[in-house]
Design a protein around this nucleic acid. Structure first.
Length: 528
RNA sequence: GGCCCCUUCGUCUAGUGGUCUAGGACUCCGGCCUUUCACGCCGGCAACACGGGUUCGAGUCCCGUAGGGGUCACCA
């Protein structure tokens, strides 16, 4: 039997990182067995613009490389894959349930049910519907309708015994039937509710494994009741723990961004993301752009494999030490029986660490390509790129090395892309490295003379030149190199000094040093 | 509140009665490397929620307690 799994997002306009984790488990389970992964859209409830709210979700899946075999845009034998278009199927099932006596027409009014519920609460007993307005025959229906009542369809749940089933993650579970109320499956207007739709669709799509978050565990008995009453076979269930908030065990929610922003690591990630977003013209409003959403990672230059690797370990492990899983390795090793039972908190640091590892392993060519995209979006590099400039960018990316964690980090090195005149000197380093050391100006001016005449302007030559210079002047490398960095980049920290000079080239390097010296003279004068 | 679920370092986890003076990873803290930053390398801090059993022996089994979470819709 081929394994078929599904993920059923509501079109909410964004792809939630916790949802993706669950989707990933589904995807792995199906794909590793040569089965199918289905995407079904749970939009029974939405009045929103489907196009607008679905696209970001589909884009997110595509970016991550979680391809679906059946679903929106790809179709499939059971199309459509939108619940909003499958009402007829649910209504048929509802009629069948009615006919077999597993459901009934209920003519109660909302306030009557509410009163019963309230009474039960007052007496501190479980609410069990009296079924006073239950109609099981046409005569009864006619009677109620003559009173001006209309009906909904409710499940006629068993009132004794237990519902027992096996769950791939939680083991054997059981619930008392008596605690299950007579859930509504069809509204007065004929539209159907989630539980019915869900069971019917899973059956129609031949879903063999229902892998979803634990919050659905307590929904399972009523779904089992529906499916058994309809004569369907039971799928395998696997209720996986949900992804929890950073630093707590509450379910991760996109609505609580303000609160997460109080978390140090979350805030830091958000801020570095927002900085990049600002430069490339992406709206960085924390409600639509934050580390809970998959778009966030795509927009700031994460690698999808890094995100996936982090997510697969959120609630699953292979053994006591293996941490790095390529997609192929995940597919090879994933197994439902090693899914953990307790909820896992979302940890930005660890995700970042995976990203750093993957980015580091990325071949220079691809890394350059990713970074180039950001430079272009930020308007620092034209489109198309001049061949010569392409080489320079590649050199910058290479020299930056692991300082580029996400591709958007390239923007931190924009100093290479601005004109010498526009270079701004950060105040503190300028004071500390240029103004304060008495001989900084002199040394810099002298060294600038050397720079103008070196045979060559590559890193090795420059390094030799600087060492020679230091020797003749009887100073240490540290006495000049810091000032040199500030003069040429405006910043206190950056990558290798000689690489920096070589990339800038002779003319720009010397020019910048001269500008810095002029600035120094100006400040010294102002101080006197 | 009822029902259900969960509980090993700050975080993700390994652990299926002796090999656990509890292992790995991230973070953090030292040190080394070094022209800065970062990387890297070496080292360190840090956990079996609590209480009872069962057993020669319990992180591992049982019971209870506490804490956390989920769920109780004509939402999905």
């Amino acid at each position: 039997m081929t394994i078929r799994t599904r993920f059923a997002p509501s079109p909410t306009g964004y792809l939630h990182i916790g949802g993706v984790r669950t989707a990933l488990f589904n995807w792995l389970l199906a794909k590793q067995a040569g089965g199918q992964f289905i995407l079904r859209i749970d939009d029974t409830d939405t009045r929103r613009n489907l196009e607008e709210t679905l696209q970001p979700i589909l884009d997110g899946f595509r970016w991550l490389g979680l391809d679906w075999d059946e679903g929106p845009e790809v179709g499939g034998p059971q199309a459509p894959y939108f619940q909003s278009q499958r009402l007829a199927h649910y209504q048929t099932a509802s009629r069948q349930l009615l006919a077999s006596g597993h459901a009934y027409r209920d003519y109660s009014r909302p306030e009557e049910i509410a009163a019963e519920r309230e009474a039960a609460e007052k007496e501190k007993r479980d609410f069990v519907y009296s079924r006073t307005w239950m109609a099981q025959s046409d005569e009864e229906s006619a009677e109620f309708e003559s009173q001006g009542r209309s009906f909904v369809v409710r499940l006629k749940m068993p009132r004794d015994g237990k519902c027992e089933f096996h769950d791939l993650v939680r083991g054997d579970v059981s619930f008392d039937w008596a605690r299950e109320s007579d859930h509504v499956i069809q509204r007065g207007d004929g539209t159907c509710l989630y539980h019915l739709a869900n069971v019917v669709d899973d059956h129609d799509f031949d879903v063999t494994h229902v892998v979803r978050a634990v919050e659905h565990l307590s929904n399972t008995p009523r779904q089992i009741f529906i499916l058994k009453s309809l004569g369907y076979s039971m799928p395998q269930y696997a209720h996986v723990p949900f992804v929890a908030e950073p630093g707590s065990k509450n379910k991760l929610s996109k609505r609580k961004i303000d609160q997460y922003l109080n978390n140090k690591d979350f805030k830091r990630l958000y801020q570095s993301g927002a900085e990049i977003a600002k430069r490339i013209g992406v709206e960085a409003d924390p409600y639509s752009f934050n580390p809970v959403l998959v778009d966030f990672y795509r927009d700031i230059g994460f690698l999808p494999d890094a995100v996936l690797n982090y997510l697969v370990l959120l609630g699953w492990s292979l053994d006591d030490k293996t941490e790095n899983f390529s997609r192929t390795e995940m597919l090879e090793h994933f197994s439902a029986d090693r899914i953990v039972r307790s909820e896992a908190s979302f940890d930005c640091q660890k995700l970042l660490s995976f990203q750093a590892t993957y980015m580091n392993a990325l071949p220079l060519k691809q890394k350059t390509k990713m970074c180039l995209g950001f430079l272009q979006k930020a308007g620092l590099v034209g489109e198309p790129v001049a061949c010569e400039q392409g080489d320079v960018i590649s050199k910058i990316v290479e020299a930056a090395g692991d300082r580029i964690c996400m591709a958007g980090d390239i923007l931190k090195f924009d100093t290479f892309f601005i004109t010498d005149e526009d270079l701004e000197f950060e105040d503190k380093p300028f004071q500390k490295r240029m103004v304060k050391p008495a001989n900084a100006g002199f040394l810099l001016a002298e060294f600038n003379k050397v720079l103008r005449v070196t045979d060559n302007f590559d890193a090795a030559v420059l390094e030799t030149a600087l060492h020679g210079f230091c020797e003749t002047h009887g100073v240490g490398v540290g006495d000049i190199i810091h000032a040199l960095r500030v003069a040429v980049t405006g910043k206190a920290a950056g990558f290798g000094m000689f690489d920096t000079l070589a990339i800038l080239g002779r003319q720009r390097s010397c020019n910048r040093i001269q500008i810095a010296l002029d600035e120094l003279a100006k400040r010294v004068e102002a101080n006197q």
